[in-house]
Design a protein around this nucleic acid. Structure first.
Length: 266
DNA sequence: CGTCCACGTCTAC
DNA sequence: TAGACCTGGACGG
């Protein structure tokens, strides 16, 4: 599930369901080896914000008699399968690992079959770049100021997964970006960025489109924006398409690309 | 049954 | 640049 679009949708969903809710307890599933988390206040509210492939839960003190204005942020990464579910307490889904309980019988659960996701009391990772959809200017500036770095010696197909510069781009977004910008994945990243103005622009527009289509598998909501359920599949032209070429890239991940590009062309 | 594969990091040789 | 971390779905014999 989780690339920029899915993290963004998770955050929107959390904001929608937790609006005007008051939480009192947090519990970790002992099966998960992750950090134990205790409620920082007797009563608290939850808001959420995403940035690339990270998501924050902002916990705010709601204890009337002892308000101190403190705010705590719990940072999540979703690994390969993380997402949130909101259910009645007692009806939590299998593989729920961190549960936030309201004072009126509901649970917000962090669910993650494979348990690759993580959480900790923290804010945005300092080794991750700006979100290309929420801070496009910052995203462009950060790349342009660092174009001479060795990270951009890599083929663009690999560089697009580098979260220091392309925070939120994952395996399906890179495939769609390369394909829809008519970009040779094996061209040196620095040259590709200089020669193909669509490349950085589509790091903004394609994740934005994916958000509006409700994201990929393991949807947070059924058709969050009234979009037909099969629209996302139709939108994905390259990733997972049998008529495309695929190879294992230098980082061990499967790269999907237009067969017109020859792999040894680097 | 078995093997391969998955929208991602991490850390250790 | 391998593995390690995990579960489960798809597909083959």
């Amino acid at each position: 599930m989780p690339e920029l679009a899915e993290l963004n949708l998770s955050s929107q969903m959390v904001n929608r369901v937790t609006e005007s809710k008051v939480f009192t307890h947090i519990r970790k599933n002992p099966e998960h080896k992750g950090l134990e988390v205790e409620a920082p206040y007797e009563k608290f509210t939850i808001e959420s914000i995403s940035r690339g492939k990270e998501l924050l839960l902002v916990l705010k003190d709601h204890t009337e008699h002892d308000y101190n204005g403190k705010v705590d942020t719990l940072k999540f990464t979703f690994g390969m399968a993380g997402h949130f579910k909101y259910t009645k307490t007692g009806e939590e889904k299998k593989h729920s690992h961190l549960m936030f309980y309201t004072d009126d019988g509901y649970t917000l659960s962090y669910v993650d079959v494979r348990r690759f996701g993580k959480w900790k009391w923290d804010t945005w990772g300092k080794n991750r770049g700006p979100d290309p959809t929420k801070d496009y200017k910052g995203f462009i500036k950060h790349i342009e100021e660092n174009l001479d770095k060795r990270a951009f010696d890599k083929p663009i197909g690999e560089a697009l997964l580098n979260q220091a510069y392309f925070n939120g781009i994952g395996n399906y977004l890179r495939a769609e970006i390369l394909y829809k910008t008519n970009q040779n994945p094996f061209e040196k990243a620095r040259d590709a960025i200089k020669n193909n103005p669509k490349l950085l622009a589509y790091c903004n527009t394609l994740p934005t489109e994916a958000i509006l289509l409700g994201g990929g598998q393991l949807k947070q909501w059924e058709n969050p924006f009234g979009v037909e359920p099969d629209m996302f599949q139709k939108w994905m032209l390259c990733y997972g398409n049998k008529s495309m070429n695929q190879t294992i890239d230098g980082t061990g991940r499967r790269l999907w690309f237009d067969p017109k590009w020859k792999q040894n062309e680097i």
